[in-house]
Design a protein around this nucleic acid. Structure first.
Lengths: 209, 209
DNA sequence: GCCTACACGTGAGGC
DNA sequence: TGCCTCACGTGTAGG
C-alpha cells in the first residue's frame, strides 16, 4: 500500500502487457478450434476442452486402427515371404505340392473382348489344349503372347473376341480353361477377384493362403 | 455511473462467478494437456495451442495411414464374391468408374526373375515411363509383351531379371511402378496376394472393392 | 527489494 | 432496460 508512483506505473504497464498476451493467446486458441461460434473466453475454453478430448479419442482410435491394419498387412506380407522359402523348398526337392497350385487363370471382359491370363506350368501339349479350348468356346484370338518365367512356368496372355454365339459366363469360361490345363486333375477351385475396372476376374488361390 | 447499491452488489457477485467459472475451465484444460509444467494461464493457453496443433496433425497423418491401409488390407475373398454381382452390373452398363481404378500392377518373384503384369490405361509416354522405371530399378528385361484390350487398355507383361544390386522388395517395386504409371496422381495402394505357387504377388485394389 | 501472476471490484459497451 | 462480457488499475502473495 502507498507505493511510490513510479513503481505503480510500471506495474500498470506490466499488467497491461500480460493481459494483452493472454488475449492474443485466446485468439490464437480460438483460431484452431473448428466450428467455434461464440468467441467469449468461457466458450473458447470449454470448446477447446471438448475439441481436445475429441482429438485425443480420435487419435487413440486411429492408432488402434492402424495397429490392427499394420498387423493384418504384415501378416499378408509375411505369409508370402514365408511362401518364398517354401518355394525354395519345393524347388530343392522335386516340387510336390506345386502342380496343385497352378494353373492360375484370370479372365476379364470388356464389351465383346476377353482378356485371358493363364499362369501355368510348362507341360507338353498344354498350350495346344488351351488354344483348342478357346476356339471351341467361340472365342477368336486377336492377339496373344507367351512369356517364360523361371524354368517351368509360362505366362500366357490372350486377347480374344467373343463370337456372336458366345454365351458363356466368365466363371464357366475360366472353369473350362482350367480343366483344359489341368487335364486329369480334379477341378481346382477358383475365386472371383475384383479388378476394379468394371471387368470380372477369376483367380485360383492356394489353400495355404 | 452511480448505480443503485443493489445492482452493484449483484454485479460484483456475478463477476465473481464468471471468474470462478473461467478459473475452473483453465484447470480443466490444463488437466488434459500432457506434460504441462507451469500452470499459469499463459502457459496453459500456449501449451494448449501447441498440443492441439500436434493432435490435429497426428489425426491427419493417421487418417491418411488408415485410408491407405484400409485399401491395402484383406477382405479379398469376401468382397470379391460380392463383386460378382457388381460385375454383371458393370457389364450391362458401360462401366464408368473405370479409368480411376487403373493401373493394376502385379509382381511375382521366382529366384532372380520377376514377372510383371501391368494393366493400365493407354496413355502417351506411359510405357516409356514404365520401361525407364524398370531399368532404373536394376531390372533387366528378358522378355515382354503388350496387348491391347478394348480401346483404351493395355496389358503389359514383362519378365525381367534382377541385377546383382537389386535390393528392392516387391512392395516398393510395385509402388515405384505405380507412381510411374499414375504420374501426377497420388500413390495408389497395393496389396500383396498369395499366389500359392511359391511366388509373391501384389495387386492393386479399386476403391469400390 | 524486484518480478510474476493472480484475483478483485468497477466502469463501459454490446445485444 | 437488464444481462453478460470484457478491460482496466490496483493490491497482494510467493519466489
Amino acid at each position: 500500500m502507498s507505493r511510490p508512483p513510479i513503481d505503480t506505473r510500471e506495474h500498470l504497464i506490466a499488467e497491461r502487457k500480460r493481459r494483452e498476451k493472454l488475449s492474443q493467446s485466446f485468439i490464437a486458441l480460438s483460431a484452431i478450434i473448428p466450428g467455434l461460434k461464440k468467441m467469449d473466453k468461457a466458450s473458447i475454453l470449454s470448446d477447446a476442452i471438448n475439441y481436445m478430448k475429441q482429438l485425443q479419442e480420435r487419435v487413440k482410435k486411429l492408432e488402434e486402427e492402424v495397429a490392427i491394419r499394420t498387423v493384418e498387412s504384415v501378416v499378408i506380407v509375411k505369409k508370402s515371404q514365408v511362401l518364398a522359402f517354401d518355394d525354395i523348398f519345393s524347388l530343392d526337392e522335386n516340387s510336390n505340392h506345386f502342380e496343385q497350385q497352378l494353373p492360375e487363370i484370370e479372365a476379364r471382359v470388356l464389351d465383346k473382348h476377353v482378356l485371358l491370363r493363364i499362369h501355368y506350368e510348362k507341360q507338353k501339349g498344354c498350350m495346344t489344349e488351351i488354344l483348342r479350348e478357346i476356339k471351341k468356346l467361340n472365342l477368336s484370338i486377336l492377339n496373344s503372347s507367351v512369356l517364360s518365367f523361371g524354368s517351368s512356368i509360362l505366362e500366357m496372355t490372350i486377347v480374344a473376341q467373343m463370337d456372336v454365339d458366345f454365351c458363356m459366363n466368365i466363371e464357366d469360361l475360366v472353369k473350362s480353361l482350367h480343366t483344359s490345363c489341368v487335364g486329369l486333375d480334379e477341378a481346382t477351385p477358383c475365386i472371383l477377384i475384383a479388378n476394379g475396372n468394371g471387368s470380372c476376374s477369376e483367380r485360383r488361390i492356394g489353400l495355404d493362403f
